[in-house]
Amino acid sequence: MTIGLIDTGCANLASVRFALERAGHDYVVAAGPNAAEDCDRLILPGVGAAAPAMAQLERSGWADVLRKDQRPLMGICLGMQLLFNRSAEGDVECLGLVDGMVEKLPATSGLVWPHMGWNTLDEVSDDEVLLGGIERGTHVYFVHGFYAPKAAYTRAATGYGAPISAVVRQGHVSGCQFHPERSAGAGAQILKNFAEMSA
């Protein structure tokens, strides 16, 4: 069991890599799809903006592969947002693997932008494999200014002005809006759940 860690040239690959190493999960860093041929699951990390990240995925051939691939896939933060049909950040077409739109967090009175810090998972689906062992009310670390509204794909939600999808799933494709690699024990549990789920 090996995780393919998709390298979009984004800054936070190191923290995801180190989190996998701390837990002893095997992974390879894959700038292009060929490098991940032997992997049975994929992580799409991401920091930065949607448009340059999508452009990089298209250039590297990853975008085409991900649109057809059936291996378990987990996007993290921006990587989760790229799974959707479209993002309002730069008004860019994304991978279309989760049926929905990413929108800008509304400027709500009394709340600062971006949403940054430890927030609670207020709703947690009992049957979501990524959330095994994670209780309602658990804090995880968010940093984002755009978000996926709560909808059919939502498996866990948090609140910051609007209800925000914290974990999403559509079939084999899943994502976390927060950073499991920076969410202490709860994040390590989620990465473990992904690494050990049946492919």
Partner: peptide
């Protein structure tokens, strides 16, 4: 970055985009 699982920020003498990139890529 290798030993902790919470976020952290680094400061000190970052003067250019390249200086910043080096630290972000380091974790």
């Amino acid at each position: 970055a290798q030993v902790i699982d919470i976020p952290f920020c680094v400061a000190g003498g970052i003067r250019t985009v390249d200086d910043a990139r080096a630290r972000l890529f380091a974790g």
